[in-house]
Design a protein around this nucleic acid. Structure first.
Length: 452
RNA sequence: GGCGGCGUGGCCGAGUGGUUUAGGCAAGGGCCUGCAAAGCCCUGUACAGGAGUUCGAUUCUCCUCGCCGCCUCCA
């Protein structure tokens, strides 16, 4: 059973599924008003790893992650560009999935859209108003946080200290500066849905409450997201659920942010902060590895240097995959599997889990150097198994070698056979010039496409 | 101002009250190789600063400095 740091409890806690054999998790997805940020990429990767790990351990995972397709920022962008907010949302939802698909992030089981849940949101809000937990004002409907027991749980702050920190608010009608909008009345020209309090749109926090409860049911297992969402977003989700008398997430977990250091990204990367551009310049797996090699709650440095280092480490993984491609199938080394699980179960220690993979590769290589294929096979199988568990697929998809390249390879083997090394070296240079990496093996010259 | 996090060897990044080490990248030396590539072996003696607790702290406490996040519907 995996233990994760629970933001509400402030300590590690078992993630004990509500239903045996099944895991229900909700992760806040993007507001689609622009290209995804590099930080969104880390968020997506972290929860993808969690999800894959659950699945790998045999659990049936229901992973819900929303798309916020109506929001102030979307409206603002639509207005700037003179088009509908739907156009904006559709465009950037596509950009979002392009990016996370490239990262190898598995699609959610369900990806609900806010605009499809407005009716349910209205009825949740109406219930809160009827119960006296929320109140309408001239510009919308607000939740009264004073009616919510335990408000401040995720912020790790008392109501008093939150109040002390609150900025001066423009809405004088709010009963407490901490009260937040459940519903926003539409201004002229804005998208609007009919509601008892006047036409408008839902506030941001309500959608996640309604959609998670609808698609996962009460008391679902895990709610995740970036640490910046802990407060106010998740706090306010929880507040609504509590006010409505619904059981909400049983565990809360949050990933840390990306830092790009004071240092600029390397020259080759420029100062990219959006994921879409980044993924055009680096192997997406390198970003996944950078994320895996840091602890999910700690800040991680993403720079050209760290991505390059990860890329080189990955080429070692790929070289290994080529080396063991012809090894006979074998069951994965059980002790390695156990060590990996111990690391992952301990608050998702992916750095330790990945270190286990490197250590297996080293052991397998040593065995192969000694000619012990039988000894290497279970280790190689474990590498495949574990790398797959964290979503690191090695890019060995057997290159189809063009005839001209194959001819050069044959010619080189012949040259080497007759100890014509000058000729062999010249042929190697030609292959390299054509973009192929050349390795000599017991089976003769082997080539594969150079990574970059 | 309030709350929280972080500061580890050339770079990134785990971890732990003490005897033996994360791991990756980079560097130096070696083995292997016709030469390479890939791989393997060896080397580097790090824990922001100060005080304290302790037989002993990088690991606990306090303070200082620096960086960052949230308190503004930003992962």
């Amino acid at each position: 059973m995996i233990r994760l740091h629970d933001t509400g409890l402030g300590r590690l806690a078992d993630v004990e599924p509500r239903d045996a054999g099944k895991v229900s998790m909700y992760v806040c997805g993007p507001t689609v008003y622009g290209l995804p940020h590099i930080g969104h990429g880390r968020m997506a990767l972290v929860w993808d790893v969690v999800r894959r790990y659950f699945e790998w351990t045999g659990l049936d995972v229901r992973f819900v992650s929303n798309i916020t397709d109506i929001d102030d920022k979307i409206i603002a962008r639509a207005n700037e560009e003179g088009r509908s907010s739907t156009d904006v949302a559709v465009q950037y939802e596509a950009a979002w999935y392009d990016a996370v698909d490239a990262l190898g992030v598995k699609r959610p089981t369900v990806d609900p859209h806010a605009t499809a849940y407005v009716e349910q949101m209205i009825s949740l809000i109406a219930g809160l108003v009827a119960a006296g937990k929320a109140y309408p004002t001239s510009d919308g409907v607000y939740l009264s946080v004073d009616t919510v027991p335990g408000y401040g749980l995720l912020a790790r702050q008392s109501l008093d200290s939150l109040r002390a920190g609150a900025r001066v608010d423009v809405v004088e009608e709010k009963r407490s500066p901490l009260d937040f909008a459940l519903w926003k009345n539409a201004k002229p020209g804005e998208p609007t849905w009919d509601a008892p309090w006047g036409g408008g749109r839902p506030g941001w926090h309500t959608e996640c409450v309604v959609m998670s409860l609808d698609l996962l049911g009460e008391g679902f297992d895990l709610h995740g997201g970036g640490i910046d969402l802990a407060f106010p977003h998740h706090e306010n989700e929880r507040a609504q659920a509590v006010a409505a008398g619904r059981d909400f997430a049983r565990r809360w977990a949050h990933n840390g942010h990306v830092q790009m250091g004071g240092e600029k990204m390397s020259k080759s990367l420029g100062n990219i902060t959006n994921l879409t551009d980044l993924l055009e310049m680096v192997d997406p797996r390198a970003y996944r590895l950078v994320v895996l090699q840091s602890h999910y709650r700690a800040p991680v440095e993403v720079t050209g240097t760290t991505l390059d280092a990860a890329g080189r480490a990955l080429s070692g993984l790929d070289a290994f995959a080529r080396r063991v491609a012809d090894l006979p199938d074998a069951p994965a080394d059980p002790q390695a599997i156990a060590r990996f699980r111990a690391a992952m179960d301990d608050d998702l220690d992916t750095p330790g889990a990945v270190a286990e993979i490197w250590s297996l590769m080293k052991a397998a290589n040593t065995a192969l150097d000694a000619g012990d294929a039988a000894g290497a096979a279970p280790l190689a199988a474990a590498v495949r198994e574990l790398a797959g568990a964290v979503g690191l697929v090695s890019a060995v998809a057997g290159d189809d070698i063009p005839a001209d390249v194959a001819a050069l390879v044959t010619a080189r083997d012949e040259a080497r056979g007759s100890r014509d090394f000058a000729g062999a070296d010249a042929l190697r240079d030609r292959l390299v010039g054509l973009g192929w990496a050349v390795e000599d093996t017991a089976q003769g010259t082997r080539v594969h496409r150079k990574d970059t």
